[in-house]
Design a protein around this nucleic acid. Sequence first.
DNA 1: ACGAAGCCCTGCAAGC
DNA 2: TGCTTGCAGGGCTTCG
Length: 271
Amino acid sequence: MPELPEVETTKRGISPHVLGKKITKVIVRESRFRWPISPELQAQVEGYTVRTIERRAKYLLFGLDHGYFMLHLGMSGSLFITKQSNPVQKHDHVEFYLPNKLSLRFNDPRRFGSLLWVGSSPHEHELLLRLGPEPFANEFNGDWLFKKSRGKKCAVKNYIMDNHTVVGVGNIYANEALFLSGIRPGKAARRISRAQYNSLATIIVDVLNASIDMGGTTLKDFVGGDGKPGYFQQTLQVYGRANKPCRTCQSPIKLIRLGQRSTYYCPQCQN
DNA sequence: ACGAAGCCCTGCAAGC
DNA sequence: TGCTTGCAGGGCTTCG
């Protein structure tokens, strides 16, 4: 389940091997993804050079001279550089041949990911057009969270996981950030104070940044490796810790479901 | 406009 | 041991 830090880490990991390189061949072994991979993609990409790689939310945008293709890792996707001669593993669904007998491979067991040709204005694409701000953008702060939340009855956890509020906050980081902010996840978004949103916004940015920094330590393993997710290396405070003692107060961590997602919190520390 | 639920899919763990 | 069942989850889509 790649969260934003893994997508950013992936981008940084593959960039040196992909930027300025010509994609000589595209092999689609499985086209059934979130949306089927169109034959157009292969035709548009083969023989062209990658000029830019951007991340928007959890999407990666690959810029060629005549347009962009966009890739999402879904829940189980990974993207890595490998030698063309290395055996194709299960779920290595798409392969981009690069110079020097290297390849960029897209592996995705659950196929919740996507790969789309989006033409010359990717940011105008339907999937990106109405997304909220990046967490690292200036416009994302406590003030934004507070103002946008007025009148919203939904749980604050669902609110911060909504891509219209801010992008890139997945289930794990939503749980962790709410714990670190002392906010109970089921509380209505409109009932959170400005001060609490200031704290929450800062913590979201800090947690994502820390995770990207840790992810960066695995970059050297990207050739032939898989880029270990950053969050496995950090100590999770509540996520996956149902009934275990809170690291702060020893109270058992509670597990509930909000918006069909596992939600963990400390009933003592979060109000 | 909002919010909740449904759906896509495979791997893994638990239960029998 | 080998089956069946349930759960996990990002995010688009549909329904109320």
